[in-house]
């Protein structure tokens, strides 16, 4: 079942929670294209003066740019940066005018650099490039180890290498301080329509680092996919991580209040919510790591 929230993330952000397993074929191809672009772009970028007007059109680059940019350097962030369910930096983002990722509105902001994701509306990115705007595309992060590269990449694009290195050092110290040395307990990530994430995703890595075995990965999923409720119940996870429902009703989210799932959660005793901190490879992912570490330690 297609779902809109995932589509929105798809448009702007990480592949970690993309629901379309069938789209994974596109990843190697896109990575190859992106790597080629990166090779073309980085050489002149290093020599260029720092860009003065930066527009970000991707939720994850929004947050990294807000963390790294010099005052006045960042002109606009995407509308998702002010969405409490997707963004960890809602308050900061409120200070910037929002864009919706369309080529026309972004071009009219006269940027000298646009930050985008590799899955960001490719049509807009192509058009901006044709119009002579420099676009740097940042690939989604699928593991905690990739977060420093991500921070450095955005830092370089902004000409803020020092700030980026400082942020990376903080991130690595924070991650090291959260290390967990406990045998794996079972945990499941469960989202509307029975969507879950398996191997090779940021969420899976968060679970692995905090002493959990991800039921989705054990069930053989790579990337995202659906796990029937029956199989989740039989796996008897010790912790169930779900998302907070949106306002308004939907059948997709009804599964999160299914009596069988409620029973499993009651037995588990611990239930966690995956929120905006889980979405992007920013330093805020450490809050998700800390939350899961706390859950793991409570299981002892």
């Amino acid at each position: 079942m297609v779902n809109k929230a995932a589509y929105r993330r798809d448009r702007h952000t990480s592949a970690a929670r993309r629901p379309y397993a069938r789209q994974t074929w596109a990843i190697p191809a896109l990575f190859a294209i992106n790597a080629a672009f990166a090779a073309l772009c980085t050489t002149p970028a290093a020599a260029d003066p720092a860009p003065a007007r930066v527009v970000s059109i991707n939720l994850c680059t929004d947050q990294l740019a807000m963390l790294l940019a010099a005052p006045g350097q960042l002109v606009s962030v995407s509308d998702l940066a002010t969405d409490i369910r997707s963004s960890s930096m809602v308050d900061q983002a409120a200070a910037y005018p929002a864009n919706h990722g369309g080529a026309e509105e972004v071009f009219l902001l006269h940027p000298d650099l646009v930050l985008a994701g590799t899955y960001t509306t490719l049509g807009s990115v192509d058009m901006l490039r044709r119009l002579g705007v420099r676009v740097v595309q940042v690939p989604p992060v699928n593991a905690l180890d990739q977060v420093p590269e991500q921070i450095i990449a955005v830092g370089q694009a902004l000409g803020r290498e020092d700030a980026a290195r400082k942020l990376v050092a903080e991130f690595q110290a924070g991650l090291a301080a959260l290390a967990v040395d406990l045998p794996p307990a079972t945990a499941a990530l469960y989202f509307p329509n029975g969507y879950t994430t398996g191997k090779g995703t940021l969420a899976d890595d968060v679970l692995t680092r905090t002493g959990f075995a991800n039921v989705g990965a054990t069930a053989g999923l790579t990337g995202g996919g659906t796990l029937p409720l029956e199989r989740l119940v039989l796996a008897e996870p010790q912790v169930v991580v779900t998302s907070t429902p949106y306002p308004g009703a939907s059948r997709a989210e009804e599964i999160l209040s299914h009596p069988a799932l409620a029973e499993i959660r009651k037995k588990a005793g611990i239930s966690a919510a995956s929120d905006a901190d889980w979405v992007c490879g920013t330093p805020y992912i450490l809050r998700a790591v800390a939350g899961m570490r706390q859950a793991r330690e409570a299981l002892k």
Partner: peptide, 22 residues
């Protein structure tokens, strides 16, 4: 609907499904 999943459920109401009923 303010719920982003709701619009994707048009097909459910038109076609019907018994999945995950309680």
């Amino acid at each position: 609907s303010p719920n982003p999943f709701a619009a994707m459920e048009i097909v459910h109401w038109m076609m019907g499904s018994l999945a995950d009923r309680s």
